[in-house]
């Protein structure tokens, strides 16, 4: 337990080591620590932002899905309407065609009957004249009785 020059030497070493640490050890380590702290802070902020972005994106997805569903419904409704209209049109056209065909057929049939009637009338007049000739045994002048025959034809109509 003595004091000697070791004290002075130790004092000098004390300052030299302290100076060395101040110069070459402390700054790089503190710099690294500060940088890492900043990195971690940035990372955490980025993670928070990503989380918020995710929530937004999910909201947007839901919204888009809703819109898509809506527009699909609209499209389907329009298509159904269109189809119904097409069917109605087709049905109306068919009905029209049928009616026209029936009309045509009736008109045809009417005309044929008329023609038959006309032929019959001609024949009736001829038959009547022939019958009368038989009855009278003489020739009837058709010219003389043309008015009578016309009247008869008229009546048969």
């Amino acid at each position: 337990m003595n004091l000697n020059a070791t004290l002075i030497a130790q004092l000098v070493v004390f300052f030299i080591l302290g100076w060395f640490t101040m110069k070459f050890v402390w700054p790089p380590i503190v710099k690294a620590l500060d940088e890492r702290a900043k990195k971690i802070a940035d990372g955490l902020a980025a993670a928070d932002k990503a989380k918020a972005d995710l929530v937004l994106a999910e909201k947007k997805v839901v919204e888009e899905l809703r819109k898509a569903r809506e527009s699909a419904g609209d499209t389907r409704a329009a298509a159904e309407k269109q189809a119904a209209k097409l069917i109605d049109d087709a049905r109306a056209e068919a009905a029209r065609l049928i009616a026209k065909a029936r009309e045509d057929a009736e008109a045809e049939a009417g005309a044929a009957a008329q023609r038959a009637k006309e032929a019959l009338r001609e024949q009736v007049a001829a038959l009547a004249v022939a019958g009368a000739e038989r009855i009278l045994r003489k020739e009837i002048n058709a010219q003389a009785h043309v008015e009578l025959l016309a009247n008869l034809k008229q009546e048969l109509q």
Binding site: M1, N2, L3, N4, A5, T6, I8, A9
Partner: peptide, 9 residues
């Protein structure tokens, strides 16, 4: 001596 500045350990 207790104190001797000429000595170094």
């Amino acid at each position: 001596n207790i104190v001797d500045w000429s000595v170094i350990n």
